[in-house]
Design a protein around this nucleic acid. Structure first.
Lengths: 247, 247
DNA sequence: CGCGCTCTGTGCGCTAGCGCGCAGACGGAC
DNA sequence: GTCCGTCTGCGCGCTAGCGCACAGAGCGCG
């Protein structure tokens, strides 16, 4: 029902869907794309505080009845997404109690992730944070290979590029990833988890607990999050990834 | 209407209203007390990610339909608060659309504050963060003097006690505050703002924009936030503080 | 009055990460 | 093949904050 009022759009890498302080014109439901939520702090520093893929939605403030975003939304993985006018979304929200309830739960997960990120950013070393970031991205890219430059990563983690170079080099030497000119491949997902801080697992646990099986954990259509996620992703990759999740 | 279903409780300093992962039995509306929201990361480190006084409420997850809290809530300023059973609160929420809308806006502000804190914690030096913290606390204590040890502050800011000692010493030498065995007095609020990072002002702007005049900005009963705040606080201090806010 | 607890201040060696600048490596465009 | 832009790797000096340990200062309590 919700999908009927959406239009499909293709998002290109580095597109800015909205900037900090801007009005939200649409909500987005990524299908194969995924998007970074970035908190700018001054002209040259910023920090990623959230990552949205087909497990979530972009436009949390609209769920809360506010039409400006404190965060910048930057497309990090190109691909398709469904989107809906803010006003249409507001009406849909008003009509459907279950939708409102489901999205409220998603807001909670987002909130939890924010708090987790705040603490993680404060206490954990770059290498562990990088490992966490790679795992999160892999989940949303539904692929163990994706494109991301160290410069971009540095912006996300709020560190210097050199810091990323060192951390990535270390992970590569330990045969956990392979990094070649912007193309990362996760080789040893299990090892990467061990190298990451507990924050990755904490995020996942929170999501699964509140919203049930996520796109990365099941091959079937999501029973509870169906309103938020979208059909169209292939189950094969996810299942392959999930099979390794036992660690 | 909401107040009728609340009971008044007295909160003592260092009371833990709920711990991370615990079920939320009540929501709280601080009257003269204020409460720190803390994200524990491991046994010995934690980070304050929110502060709730009479301008807000404790129990955001319940607004979102989730009954566990990812955060620990510790009473930081002793005093009275109104509280309400989680179930009763849920019913009230279901009955009143305006209440739900108002609280959703508060959740948004909380969310914004979380993101702000994440970035602040990453980029700003201890001294600036301390200044921000003191200003936030002064707002909620409705007094320029309050009790807080450096040890506690260190926990909140996620740094060593020594770091706080140095930062507080610096602020004191600059005649912005007076620190004597756990009793802090803000002497020069304006100067303290200058010494703090922009995050304090950003928080305030966000609150005022979304929820309108807060208890710290007006002597009248809040027109929009009345469901969340409570009568009983004296306007004099706030007015006195507000008078200096022009900076 | 003196004991003991709590809170603050300091010193020292260490590390992670910063700012800057530069060199090499890869790869697409012409 | 050559050129040039992009991406990665490294060196160097520096700072903020860490871990640890200890000294003094205020204050309540017996």
């Amino acid at each position: 029902m919700l999908l009927a009022e959406c239009e499909t759009v293709d998002l290109a890498c580095a597109d800015v869907l909205y900037d900090s302080g801007e009005r939200l014109s649409h909500v987005y439901f990524p299908v194969r794309s995924f998007i970074s939520l970035i908190m700018p702090v001054d002209a040259c520093s910023s920090l990623e505080v959230g990552l949205v893929g087909d497990e979530g939605m972009l436009g949390v403030p609209l769920v809360l009845g506010v039409d400006v975003s404190p965060l910048r939304a930057v497309v990090q993985g190109a691909g398709s997404a469904l989107r809906m006018e803010a006003a249409t979304f507001g009406r849909a929200l008003g009509r459907s109690d279950p939708l409102r309830r489901e999205l409220a739960r998603y807001v909670f997960v987002h909130l939890h992730q924010l708090a987790q990120t705040a603490a993680c950013t404060r206490f954990h070393v770059v290498e562990a944070r990088l490992a966490r970031w790679l795992l999160m991205t892999q989940d949303r890219a539904h692929s163990s290979t994706f494109h991301v430059t160290q410069e971009f990563l540095a912006q996300m983690l709020g560190v210097r590029r050199v810091g990323v170079t060192k951390a990535a080099g270390s992970l590569q030497r330990r045969n956990l990833i392979c990094y070649r000119r912007g193309d990362v491949t996760v080789i040893d997902r299990h090892g990467l988890k061990a190298a990451s801080c507990g924050c990755y697992k904490a995020d996942r646990r929170s999501y699964d607990r509140i919203l049930g099986p996520a796109p990365w954990a099941t091959g079937a259509c999501l029973p509870r999050a169906s309103a938020m996620s979208s059909p169209g992703w292939t189950a094969t990759d996810d299942a392959a990834i999930s099979a390794k999740e036992t660690g």
